[in-house]
Structure formats: C-alpha cells, structure tokens
C-alpha cells in the first residue's frame, strides 16, 4: 500500500500525513498558503517551538517577534554564521573560523572578514536585532541563491559560501546593498540556510523575462538566475529641482524574496 505524504508548499519537502509542520523548513502544513492577489506569497509563520531537521542535527525556532534559531548539532555536523548573531552556546560546542578569499575587498565593503563555524555535538542559538521573521530555506542539490549582505543568520556546512560582486557602478551606488551579495551554492547534498528578514517576508516566482521594480533596501534574496539592475527615476518639482528614486528591476526566471521593513538608503 503506498504511504500517503504531504508536500510542503514552501520548500517542496515530503512529510508524513500526520505532520503539522514541515520537517525540513518548519512551515505549518495545516494552514492555508497566504498569497496576495498580486502574486506575493507570505513566508510561512513558523509556530513557536517548531523543530526542523537537517543532517544529524535539529533547529528549534523559539519566539515570534524576534525569533531565535536554536541549533542542537549532531556529532560531526557544523554550521557557519556571521559575527553579532550569536545569542548563546554550550561551553562544549567547538568553535572555529572559516577563512575567506578576498579579505581586503570584504573589509573595504563593510562585510565580515571572518565567518565563524560551530561544530557539534552541542547547542548554539542565534538571533538578529529587530522584529522580523526567520526564513528557512532548505537548498536542494545544485541550487544557487544570492542573499543581501548581513541578512543571513546561519547555514549548514553542506552549503558552500562565497560572495559575488554586484556589477555596475549604479547598482553599487544606488542599489542599497553595498558592493557584494552573499552566494550560497549546494553541490550534491541538500543544506539548510536560515535568513532573518526584517518585518514580514514575501516571495514571488518570476517567469522568464518577467520583471518587477523593488525598493533596493527591501531585497532579501533571489535565485542566481534572477538579474538585478537599478533604475533611477527623476521626479521634478519646479524651482526646487525635485527628487530622485532608485528602484531595482528584478527580471526572471526565478524566485525573489523581499522584506517589508526595508533598510532605507539615501537616494537624493
């Protein structure tokens, strides 16, 4: 007799029929997917104390206003993360540093020079510093995801981390996200990536050639296939000259994620 399974609408993972939340991303399976008429899907509101499984480890999501990701690392599993997101850890959890290429460029661009690594067994917990949502993105083999700098909370060691330089002077100056974006790539194994989005997080899948204009400070993540170009719109106001507005044109195919409490950048 075939075993009945429930597919998670957020990450497509298969779950047992009796499960109330997805084993891979924590999304509730017993509530309706919230999609706006304009096509934005709200990131699933992960219920307090939901457990997520990856490798030999688990992640428990605690709290709802500024959620905490508490990781119980299995032996041999590890995660990496930026400075300033560590909330607490067990004494026994092993810590090390992942050295990165292009250190000088990263320092000049205001990005972290070192990425820390925690290795199991042991517990370690993370949170950011503002109201928002944890966005749990299980990455399947062969996926490439670009993330706004300082938005990633932690990633499992199955995912390789690099950074890509944002192309074009206009994109750097008016794109509101500096010179680099973080890039997460999976090879043969699936991995877990957790971001913290400020405010509420929404995702939309763009078709090939379809484009949308987004406030650059609202950009959170995108598939590597989505292109981003900043456009400047001049708004005139007679004697006073007016004002300008920069918007990022995101063109598909692929996913794009935005946050509603965006990081404002100066456009004038």
């Amino acid at each position: 007799m075939p075993i009945e399974r429930v597919v998670c609408q957020w990450c497509q993972a298969m779950n047992e029929k009796s499960a109330v939340s997805c084993r891979a991303c924590g999304a509730p399976l017993d509530i309706k997917n919230l999609v706006s008429e304009s096509g934005w899907r709200e990131a699933p509101r992960i219920k307090d104390m939901t457990e997520i499984h990856f490798g030999q480890s688990t992640c428990q999501v605690e709290g709802e206003i500024v959620p905490v990701a508490e990781i119980n690392l299995g032996p041999g599993d590890s995660i990496f993360f930026e400075h300033h997101v560590l909330l607490w850890k067990d004494d026994a959890t092993q810590m090390s540093v992942m050295t990165l290429q292009g250190g000088v460029s990263r320092v000049l661009a205001g990005m972290p020079f070192v990425i820390s690594v925690a290795t199991g067994p042991g517990r370690v917990a993370f949170s950011r510093d503002a109201t928002g949502e944890l966005v749990v993105l299980p990455l399947h083999p062969g996926m490439e995801l670009d993330v706004r700098e300082h938005a990633f909370l932690l990633s499992s060691h199955h995912i390789s981390y690099s950074f890509v330089r944002i192309k074009g002077l206009r994109n750097i100056l008016f794109g509101g996200q500096g010179m680099f974006m973080d890039r997460f790539v999976t090879s043969n194994e699936p991995g877990l990536l957790i971001l913290h989005g400020y405010g509420n997080v929404f995702e939309r899948v763009l078709k090939p050639g379809e484009s949308i204009l987004v406030e650059p400070g609202a950009f959170l993540y995108k598939d590597a296939t989505v292109t981003m170009n900043v456009e400047f719109q001049q708004l005139k106001s007679g004697f006073f000259g007016g004002s300008g507005m920069s918007l990022a044109r995101m063109t598909g195919p692929g996913r794009i994620g935005i946050q509603s409490m965006y990081i404002h950048h100066n456009t004038e």
Binding site: E42, T131, F202, M261
Partner: peptide, 23 residues
C-alpha cells in the same frame, strides 16, 4: 492577514502583521 478593502474600481490588500504592507 490578506484582508481586502474595495475602493471604487480598485482595491487594497493588507499583507503581513509585523510591518504590514499596503498592496
């Protein structure tokens, strides 16, 4: 979440709860 308000021929949808979006 996703409440809708009709305004003439247009409408507004309010999305999210922490920092709500007016769409």
């Amino acid at each position: 979440d996703m409440a809708k308000i009709q305004i003439g021929n247009s409408h507004l949808q309010i999305e999210g709860e922490y920092v709500p979006v007016a769409d």
